[in-house]
Design a protein around this nucleic acid. Structure first.
Lengths: 233, 233
DNA sequence: ATCTTATTATGCTGAATAACACACAAAAAT
DNA sequence: ATTTTTGTGTGTTATTCAGCATAATAAGAT
């Protein structure tokens, strides 16, 4: 982890963040209580068991959050993008982290210290309500994933993961390429399958003309068909 | 659903509920804004797609909350007990319900209307913070379950479910019998397996002396062994 | 009381998918 | 540049578990 000059004010002022409900004064207060850190691709941002130090805002880069299961097998539970929070579940649950966060690309993350976050939340009910709404949505998403990962077949699980990645990160300028470049192993860990089966099923999708593959670059050629595969299970 | 005279003041005054952080005045306000309903065993309390009307407090009885997956297959995502909330995820996410709640026993549920709940939450930061903490814990639990249900083998999943039921509902006076009586189908839907396999695996556990079965009454005879089965996967 | 339906129990078969083995390509380290 | 490591692709085998059938029992309905 390297220190670097980075301006997190952008995060706090970002119109897409939950901070829009804050008063200028409250924003100012937060801006005086954060530090920034730079993480190289592949670096661990926090590990299962670590104590959360504050509210981490992902300012740049992409992050995977996963849990270690049976025999060290990874299950990705969340994919974070800028501008978004990471590690906030443990912070608000007053627990140590129960998952590990790893940078998928070079990342910049800003930490607002815990006391400052809590103070602003107590002073601004709108912020609390936004956080509650975020948690409630995230919990719904988690329940959905549980059902998908346990009930759908490999093809359905992979199709849903690809759609999820597209919805989360969007397309490149070509309007086809999913704007994230994951290893086959990560795709597998997101979709609850072995790496071999992720590779095989991606190839099959490509043969069927649903997607095209160029290394880690995945282009969705036939979204309706991909959605049908996802629905069918 | 039958109306019945029931005193929900007990719920709001219950020392185990999140309402302990409220002032007497706020409690009084909530007590003036709730209605109670009675549900017979097997009755639906709310269904996937329904609009949440308020914050439901389960005052008496036990409730299963499940989602319908591929081919109508149920996945139980939560088991509620008194005094606890039900249907609060959708309420706070400002969505329709994404799961169905069914009474496992005769139940009494009190509904505090949405506006009143939100008003008190805006006036009392402690309450909001408690709700946030609850959501954060629940989300952690959901992530745990996802990993368990996808990665552990049948025996591990069933063992974990039995431990979960014991932790949630406790023992009968004998200190052995799990204080909930589920059908084999519900046990299966909690553990992501077919009814046949739930029956089979329960029998195996009984043969091995880990539990004993008497109809729907399950007694845990060897908790350490059950925990070991759960850990191993 | 008796009929009907739901639940529990058990065996058999087949499909889905994990596990393993190996080859090859690409990237990183020396 | 060359060695080592990491990632990708493909075939084969083994295992787990779902699906189905059938019977016995228990619970509800008429």
């Amino acid at each position: 982890m390297h220190e670097r000059t980075y301006n997190a004010d952008d995060c706090i002022d970002n119109p897409k963040s939950v901070f829009t409900v804050l008063t200028p004064k409250e924003k100012e207060f937060l801006k005086q209580n954060y530090t920034c850190a730079f993480y190289k691709k592949g670096e661990i941002i926090f590990k299962e068991g670590d104590k959360p130090l504050g509210l981490m805002i992902l300012a740049e880069g992409k992050v995977k959050i996963f849990k270690e299961g049976v025999g060290g097998r990874e299950q990705i539970v969340r994919m974070a993008k800028p501008v978004g929070f990471i590690g906030y579940r443990a912070l608000f649950a007053e627990e140590n982290h129960t998952a590990t966060a790893v940078a998928i690309e070079d990342c910049v993350s800003c930490i607002v210290d815990k006391d400052s976050v809590f103070r602003v939340m107590r002073s601004n009910a709108d912020l609390s309500m936004s956080v509650i709404q975020s948690f409630a949505s995230e919990l719904g998403f988690s329940h959905d994933r549980t059902v998908t990962l346990t009930q759908k077949h490999i093809r359905g699980r992979l199709a849903e993961s690809l759609i999820f990645l597209k919805d989360t990160y969007g397309y490149e300028d070509d309007g086809l390429t999913i704007k994230i470049y994951l290893s086959r192993e990560d795709v597998a860990n997101l979709s609850n399958m072995t790496t071999s089966n992720a590779i095989r099923t991606l190839s099959t999708f490509a043969q069927e003309g649903v997607i095209s593959i160029d290394g880690r670059k995945i282009r969705i050629l036939d979204l309706p068909k991909l959605e049908r595969i996802s629905e069918l299970g």
